[in-house]
């Protein structure tokens, strides 16, 4: 008995120790960037995680200095993310409603096609997308290279497939009795969709909005290929170029930018943790 409890204590301590090592591994980069963002010096060579005289100078320079592009990048990113996620949620809801409620020829094929197309990530067609955008430049400059509208257009294409699937799964679980009652009262399909199905599906709409928002926020490859020029960049493209050229003497401002840039996403993520996780695991974990 005594031996057992001794073993139990050892085991418990070992577990806590292991978890703490993992936690240190997990949060150290975050601690590092937060700590160094309060350093008075810009240089990375003298920076320390616990600065002797912490200062907000980096943040103030970043946000209010006239030659800082950071506010522009944040603004561009938020604008692109908001527009992309709002439109994609609406488009996916429309498609998912049709796939969930109507039976028509080609429905099965359509669903399987979406799944198949989704296996080919958009980034694999990067060369083609780039050339299509170059071609738009000549005929439809509004959507061409180096426009936010064009970038959103590309993102919307990539955002449809998977999200429609996810949403269709949720729509299937909404009982149809309410809609049938509405039909009896003379409402059209579109009317029931807007005023009955959508409000009931609010949780999944929120999940998809947020997942799409976060994905768009972190997207680097397409944005970096299509956008040129300091005032067009998204945060990901801008920050990479900002720190990449002179990381040794721009570390302070970069760290501050990293903290501000993460703040919104981290806050959203933690406040809606369970929702997001259930969405990302795609219902594969059955209850």
């Amino acid at each position: 008995m005594r031996y057992n409890s001794f073993r139990y204590i050892i085991g418990r301590t070992a577990r806590h120790a292991f978890v703490w090592i993992a936690i240190l591994f997990a949060i150290f980069p975050a601690l590092f960037v937060i700590g160094t963002s309060f350093n008075p010096a810009n240089s990375i060579s003298t920076t320390s995680i616990f600065p002797a005289s912490p200062t907000l100078a980096n943040y103030i320079n970043l946000l209010f200095s006239t030659n800082s592009s950071f506010p522009v990048w944040i603004w561009n990113t938020l604008k692109i993310c908001l527009i992309t996620s709002s439109i994609s949620v609406f488009l996916c809801a429309l498609g998912a409603y049709a796939f969930s409620r109507f039976s028509f020829r080609g429905r099965r094929i359509g669903l399987l096609t979406i799944l198949l197309v989704q296996m080919f990530p958009q980034t694999l067609g990067m060369t083609a997308i780039f050339l299509i955008m170059t071609w738009f430049n000549k005929t439809l400059p509004l959507l061409g290279l180096n426009t936010h509208a064009g970038l959103i257009f590309v993102y919307l294409g990539g955002a449809i497939g998977f999200n429609t699937w996810l949403m269709k799964g949720y729509f299937d679980t909404i009982p149809r009795s309410l809609e049938e009652a509405a039909f009896v009262d003379g409402a059209t399909h579109f009317r029931t969709f807007l005023s009955i199905v959508l409000p009931l599906a609010r949780p999944i709409l929120a999940v998809i909005f947020i997942i799409q928002f976060i994905a768009t926020y972190s997207e680097y490859m397409i944005a970096s290929t299509l956008l040129k020029g300091d005032n067009m960049y998204t945060l990901a493209v801008g920050l990479k170029l900002f720190v990449g050229q002179h990381y040794d003497d721009r570390w302070g401002p970069f760290a501050a930018a990293g903290v501000i840039g993460s703040l919104l996403i981290v806050a959203v993520f933690y406040s809606l943790q369970n929702l997001i996780v259930s969405g990302l695991t795609g219902g594969a974990v059955k209850e």
Partner: peptide, 29 residues
Amino acid sequence: YRSLLIVPYAIPSFISLLVWRYGFFSSEF
């Protein structure tokens, strides 16, 4: 513990990647 362990998942990846590259891995600084 759980909420601390998912920190890497919550931070936008492009930021943490740049921190790893320049903050941790760069050979001189």
